[in-house]
Design a protein around this nucleic acid. Structure first.
Lengths: 220, 220
DNA sequence: ATTAAAATTTAGACAAACTTAAAAAATATG
DNA sequence: CATATTTTTTAAGTTTGTCTAAATTTTAAT
């Protein structure tokens, strides 16, 4: 049996590995993500290594094993389906569902997830635009770029966000950016690397680099 | 903060107190329900007493405090709403949802439960016919009797079941008894206290006392 | 290449919830 | 009412996941 805490560690390793685009993940990075001490992480890495969910070597770091990766996909699937349910069915806002999904994803039942998937109509993307792995763990890949890579007068449609914290998402709400919104680059200011944009042909806004770097758009 | 385990103990005390119709609940009874040792129960009763969720005296037993009772009502509400969701929305059978609801009811979020309630259309009863407490903890009381108290040629409509285990509910499925079914008493056999009944004016069946004692009907 | 800094591991300890075995209290029985 | 039985509690120890502090290894910098 795999505990909820172990699942959280697996997710942490997976996420860090994805974000930083490197295989081996360090103890301190995991500790930061899990909001715990490096010592606790070392303990857990040993345990997960013994369970063959990760491959871990002292002082070298950890990476997911094949088993751990499939586990991570299952968790991702659960998390994203629950977020979809909370937003599409229960009417939560996209900045309210992360913590709830963190709890719900630990519920043990393959059948529940699959029934939920069916009930939602097999969605391919969650409310943050993240792809939902199917039963086999396959992800739909989408043609997308980071908003900050668009040049002057380019236009893109928002298809996803890179960060999921409430602060960031609430900020997007304030400037009327949501999934499906059309963003046209009006001007890029060299000085502070901010960008003036037109949103949905209605609202003008100036976005800092910190914002533009965390929005995925499909170029049009 | 109240842990998932503590919540389970509170539910156990509440359930035993209800079923046995007595205020004070013994250590052994709780141990049996929680599938643990009497020693563990003693430890926990102390802790819950310190948290003022139960009132406990050595060798005397435990009962819920006002705080504990309101906690139990919240748990009951969560459990029954999740069961309703699983059956009414996801299409689970009534004998498949208990364990899942046990997990889901521990998810921490008042808003989630209330949104779920709204989404389900504020149901008054769950798939087993048990009343669902509303936001204030109020239960709808229904006019019901135990099937075994009906006499020859009496008729009742099934409104609930007393036991929720898979074995019992699967047995009811086999003899076509479900919520809303009409049961007419054809004959009561003194010898082994079994009862011949007509179900939905279609299927004849002989029910043992063990079955009749656990079905609630509304007399018609 | 040596040293300073950062990252990681080890050691020892704690809390929650559990276990078994033994002791103590309550209850039931002759 | 004394004794036997049942119930409950105490005691001591386990596991999981956590912590702090100290020791060690790795990495970075002069």
């Amino acid at each position: 049996m795999i505990t909820a805490t172990e699942e959280d560690y697996i997710k942490a390793v997976f996420n860090i590995s994805q974000n930083e685009r490197k295989e081996m993940v360090g103890t301190n990075q995991i500790a930061a993500k899990m909001q715990t001490s490096a010592a606790s992480v070392t303990d857990m890495l040993r345990k997960l290594n013994a369970k063959e969910l990760i491959i871990y070597e002292k002082y070298k770091g950890a990476k997911l094993s094949a088993l751990g990766t499939s586990q991570a996909m299952t968790l991702l699937r659960k998390h994203r389906l629950w977020e979809s349910f909370l937003v599409y069915k229960l009417g939560f806002a996209w900045d309210e569902v992360h913590d709830l999904a963190e709890q719900l994803e630990h519920v043990k039942s393959a059948e529940l997830v699959n029934k939920l998937d069916e009930y939602l109509g097999y969605p391919k993307f969650d409310p943050h635009g993240d792809p939902i792995p199917d039963l086999n763990g396959t992800l739909t890949i989408r043609n997308q770029v980071i908003l900050s890579t668009l040049a002057g007068s380019d236009t893109g449609v928002v298809v996803g966000v890179k960060k999921h914290d409430k602060q960031f998402l609430s900020h997007l709400n304030k400037v009327n950016i949501k999934i499906g919104a059309e963003i046209k680059i009006l001007e890029k200011y060299e000085y502070d690397q901010s960008t003036k944009v037109m949103i949905d042909q209605k609202n003008e806004a100036v976005l800092t680099l910190a914002v533009c770097e965390n929005i995925f758009v499909k170029p049009v």
